[in-house]
Design a protein around this nucleic acid. Structure first.
Length: 340
DNA sequence: GCCACCGGTGGC
DNA sequence: GCCACCGGTGGC
C-alpha cells in the first residue's frame, strides 16, 4: 500500500461520476463490465451530495472499486481476496463542483493475484485497462504489481478488503483499451435503478457516444479515425455487475407502483435500504480458474433520480385519483427517503 | 436549448 | 432473464 499510487486511483474514481467531457473525465472508468455488488453493504448510488440521510457519514461519497481477480490456477476455491481498504477522500472534492449532485464512482481498480488471491490496487485506470485487456491470456500476479511497487509480493497483505463500506462489482476481462485519444467512462447509477451503470465513450472531439450504434455512425462520419485503426472492435459497452443482486431493480411486473411498493416486494431491496447482507458471497465470484474484475463502490445513500421522482409524482397522482389506497403514507416515506 | 440521467422495452 | 439502445424530461 503505498500511498503514492493511490493518487491515480483517485483520479479514476472521480471522473466516473459525471461525464464530463472535458479533461476531467480522465478518471473514469474503466471499469468494466460487470460488477457485482456483493454483499457488502454499500452500494453505489447516485446521490447527490447532500445528505443522504441515511448513511452518510463518514464516507464521503461513493466510491467504486474494481478488482479483478484472476485466479487461474488455483482454482478451486474461492478466491478470496481480502482487499485492504482504502479510502480516498479527496476524490470527492473533485466531483461536482456544483454541489448539485454527486454520483457514485469507481473508487479503485483492483485485481486479484492468480496465485495468492489477494487483491492488489492498480494505480491508474490506464494500467487497469491494460491489465484487463489481456487478463485471460496474462493472469495477474502480485509480481506484476512490482512495476509500480517494487517490493510487493504475495506475502504482503491484501491492498483492499471488502468491508462493506463499498459496493463491489465484477468487471469483465478482456475489454479492449479505448483507442488513443478516446475515453471510456463508466457511469454508475444509483441503487434501485434498472441498470447498474452506463458506459460512454468520449471521442477525441469531445463527442459523447453511448452505444455501438453511435460509435458506428461516428466512425462513418469521421473516416479519419478508421484510417488510424480505430474500429468497432475497440469498443465495448459492457458494464460491470454489482455483486448485490438487489442493487439493480429487476424488471417489474407491471404495475405502477408506488413508491415503495412498486416494485419491491418484500424481499427486494429498496432503493433506500440496502441490505447489508452477507458479505460472504461477495468475493466468491470467481470461479476457480477464471479471472474476474471487481469494483468496489461506495454508496452514500440512495436516491432516486429525476425519474424516480417523476414516477413517484405520477404515482401519487394516480393514487389520489383512484383512491383505493391510502398512499399518503407510503408516498411520504418515499419522498422522505429519496429526498435528500 | 442543451445535455445528463434514467426508465423501459425489444430482442435475444 | 439480461442487455443494448434510445426516448424523454428535468435541470441548468
Amino acid at each position: 500500500m503505498d500511498g503514492g499510487e493511490e493518487n491515480d486511483l483517485n483520479e479514476l474514481s472521480l471522473s466516473n461520476d459525471q461525464e464530463t467531457p472535458r479533461q476531467d473525465v480522465i478518471a473514469v472508468s474503466s471499469s468494466s463490465s460487470s460488477l457485482s455488488s456483493s454483499s457488502s453493504e454499500n452500494e453505489l448510488h447516485e446521490t447527490r451530495n447532500e445528505n443522504a440521510q441515511s448513511q452518510s457519514n463518514e464516507n464521503p461519497s461513493r466510491e467504486l472499486v474494481l478488482y479483478n481477480l484472476s485466479a487461474n490456477d488455483g482454482g478451486g476455491n474461492e478466491p478470496e481476496s481480502t482487499p485492504v481498504e482504502q479510502q480516498r477522500p479527496s476524490l470527492l472534492g473533485h466531483l461536482t463542483p456544483n454541489s448539485s449532485r454527486v454520483l457514485p464512482s469507481v473508487g479503485a481498480f483492483t485485481v486479484q493475484c492468480a496465485s495468492c488471491f489477494k487483491w492488489r490496487l492498480i494505480p491508474t485506470k490506464e494500467k487497469y485497462e491494460e491489465i484487463r485487456e489481456h487478463l485471460l491470456e496474462q493472469p495477474f500476479y502480485c509480481e506484476t504489481a512490482r512495476e509500480w511497487r517494487p517490493d510487493i509480493s504475495c506475502d504482503d497483505p491484501a491492498d483492499i478488503t471488502q468491508d462493506g463500506s463499498r459496493l463491489w462489482a465484477i468487471d469483465k476481462p478482456n475489454i479492449a483499451q479505448p483507442p488513443p485519444g478516446w475515453q471510456r467512462l463508466l457511469h454508475i447509477r444509483g441503487e434501485g435503478s434498472t441498470k447498474f451503470a452506463d458506459v460512454y465513450y468520449i471521442a477525441p472531439s469531445g463527442k459523447k457516444l453511448r452505444s455501438m450504434v453511435d460509435i458506428q455512425k461516428y466512425l462513418i462520419e469521421h473516416p479519419e479515425y478508421q484510417t488510424e485503426g480505430v474500429s468497432m472492435t475497440r469498443f465495448s459497452f459492457q458494464i460491470p455487475k454489482p455483486l448485490r443482486e438487489n442493487y439493480v431493480r429487476k424488471r417489474r411486473p407491471n404495475m405502477n407502483a408506488s413508491c415503495d411498493g412498486s416494485k419491491l416486494e418484500s424481499g427486494e431491496v429498496h432503493p433506500i435500504s440496502w441490505v447489508r447482507s452477507d458479505d460472504s458471497t461477495a468475493l466468491q465470484l470467481g470461479k476457480p480458474g477464471l479471472s474476474e474484475l471487481l469494483l468496489p463502490v461506495d454508496n452514500p445513500g440512495t436516491r432516486p433520480g429525476k425519474k424516480v421522482k417523476r414516477a413517484l409524482a405520477k404515482e401519487m397522482r394516480r393514487s389520489s385519483l383512484t383512491s383505493t389506497e391510502p398512499p399518503a403514507i407510503k408516498l411520504e416515506r418515499c419522498f422522505d427517503q429519496y429526498e435528500k
